[in-house]
Design a protein around this nucleic acid. Structure first.
Lengths: 178, 178
DNA sequence: TCGTCCATGTAACGCGTTACATGATTTG
DNA sequence: CAAATCATGTAACGCGTTACATGGACGA
């Protein structure tokens, strides 16, 4: 029952309101986040797969247009919730940061603000760990690295710090007690 | 003649000193950047492909060990340089930030500090553009977005700002005149 | 009517992931 | 001698990318 991030996004978008593959593409093109591609070769097959698995249903548009509008099936709701409730994988947080942010957004919409903040707290913990690891590496084995590598590592540290700061600010303005 | 990022990294690592697939895996495991996986199913086939294409050569280790040590062929040098000299794709900068950082590191090592700084300058331009776009979107269509989406967009803006700041600091401490 | 946008797909291809398999060598 | 580590691979599978193909609707 596991979904790719694209699958989850498609379920989410369709759950909002009926969407066609084309609508989804336009939306992705308009959003400057650059997380997913708007290529038809990715979206249409993904929608077809989700329908085959019974997570989506589709119908031709009322007016006789050649347009296929999707809707979320019950199994789709279940699958989306399951995906959102997955335990946070610290690896994934580092490797696929954008995906994690997307998950936060969907969580807030689908399961509510409280769930989203809980997730954000988990992110803070994992990211703080990772940051500590990076800093330790920088002071330890990093000493021996050539200049450019150290710089790149430093960039990783700086941006991680910025992300972490942002998360903490978000939680504190929410009147949150971790 | 185009390489994946993994291909480029392998050529780079091998160019430093003879490396086996196992050595490479250990190195990736030890590095906390989490850019590539250390799975054998990725590395060994990639090395084999590069050898088939004539970019790497391999030899059994002197002592009769069951170990395959790779070295960079001349065609490999050419291919690596070409990859490093590619024009910076603004899309890729956003989508694959870690890959871009890696490229900076390799550039500094392989083609020298000047080339690396030139690349960094190009990154600054592209990233500043992207930041402006994000900010415009935030003030424009972003107004209409739901809270969590706006927050996520804001996260994107904050981390992009941090990256940009870092790049500018790097260039200015280098006594650079853009 | 000509081009442009709407709208949906398919086919080839390559890469990465996961899981499995194997055997040599060191260490306890 | 058993267990862990060194060391290399293969096979199945799915997904995304690129490129190609098609055809209706609509404005100039």
């Amino acid at each position: 029952m596991d979904l790719t991030a694209l699958d989850a996004l498609l379920l989410f978008l369709v759950s909002h309101k009926g969407q066609s593959g084309y609508d989804v593409r336009q939306l992705m093109r308009a959003t400057p986040l650059g997380l997913f591609s708007d290529s038809p070769g990715a979206i249409y097959p993904a929608l077809a797969r989700l329908e085959r698995r019974g997570l989506l249903t589709s119908a031709a548009e009322p007016n006789g247009r050649r347009k296929r509008v999707y809707a979320l099936a019950e199994a789709g709701v279940v699958a989306l919730h399951a995906w959102l409730n997955q335990r946070l994988d610290p690896e994934a947080l580092v490797r696929k940061a954008a995906e994690t942010d997307l998950r936060y957004v969907m969580l807030a919409q689908v399961l509510g603000r409280a769930a989203a903040l809980g997730f954000q707290r988990a992110c803070v913990r994992a990211e703080a760990d990772h940051l500590a690891q990076l800093e330790a590496f920088y002071r330890g084995p990093g000493q021996a690295m050539v200049r450019a590598s150290r710089e790149a590592l430093d960039l990783g540290i700086q941006t991680t710090r910025a992300r972490l700061q942002w998360r903490r600010a978000l939680l504190s303005t929410q009147g949150d007690d971790p």
